Amino acid sequence: WIARINAAVRAYGLNYSTFINGLKKAGIELDRKILADMAVRDPQAFEQVVNKVKEALQV
């Protein structure tokens, strides 16, 4: 799951650890299995999560 998430978030200019930190700051409580599945099956929803994380990180 970690490898999938890392590959997906790198397309948005983040790395895995920064993304996970941003999830916590944004108050998003999705587990890694769901995030990895979302990255593959629903990229639009995953992009929305990434955008919320970037807002929380102020990137």
Rank of each mutant, 00 (worst) to 15 (best):
V40N: 10
K25M: 11
N15M: 06
K33R: 05
W1E: 15
W1Y: 15
Y16K: 01
Q48F: 12
F46V: 01
R10P: 01
R32H: 13
G13W: 03
L57G: 05
A39Y: 04
Q44P: 12
R4T: 15
N15C: 14
A8E: 03
K33L: 06
L23R: 01
K54S: 06
N51L: 11
R41T: 10
A56V: 08
Y12Q: 03
D31E: 09
I5V: 04
M38V: 05
V50D: 01
D37K: 12
A36K: 03
R10Y: 05
L35D: 01
A3M: 03
N6V: 02
I34W: 14
R32Y: 13
I20P: 00
L35M: 05
N21Y: 12
R10F: 14
K52W: 08
N6A: 12
E55L: 10
I20G: 03
A45E: 08
V50L: 03
R10K: 14
K24T: 06
I5E: 00
Q44D: 10
K25A: 12
G22K: 01
T18P: 02
P43G: 06
A7M: 10
V40F: 09
L23F: 04
K24G: 08
V59N: 09
A56F: 07
D31T: 14
V50S: 01
Y12K: 03
M38A: 03
L35T: 03
L23K: 01
M38P: 01
L14H: 01
V9M: 03
Q48L: 14
T18H: 09
S17P: 08
N6I: 02
I28Q: 07
D42E: 11
E47Y: 05
M38I: 09
R4N: 08
A7P: 01
G27L: 06
K54F: 10
V59W: 06
K52N: 10
E47P: 01
R41H: 12
A11W: 04
K33P: 10
V9R: 00
L57P: 02
I5M: 04
V49D: 00
I5H: 00
R4G: 02
N51T: 11
V9T: 04
R41P: 02
P43K: 10
R10N: 11
F46G: 00
K33V: 05
F19I: 01
V59I: 07
W1D: 15
L30T: 13
A7E: 15
E55A: 09
A39S: 13
L23N: 00
I2F: 10
F46M: 04
R10A: 13
R4E: 15
K33F: 09
V49T: 14
N6F: 01
D31I: 14
M38Y: 07
K54W: 08
K52Q: 08
V53A: 13
I5F: 04
V49P: 00
Q44L: 09
E55Q: 12
M38W: 06
A39G: 06
E47R: 11
A7V: 06
G13R: 04
K25R: 08
A8V: 03
S17M: 11
A45P: 02
D42W: 09
I34M: 11
G13D: 08
A45D: 06
N51Y: 14
P43R: 12
V49N: 02
S17F: 15
W1H: 15
A26L: 06
G27D: 07
L35Y: 05
A26T: 14
R41G: 11
V40M: 09
I28L: 09
E47W: 04
E29Y: 15
T18G: 10
L35G: 01
Q58R: 13
A3S: 11
T18Q: 11
N21W: 11
E29F: 15
R32C: 15
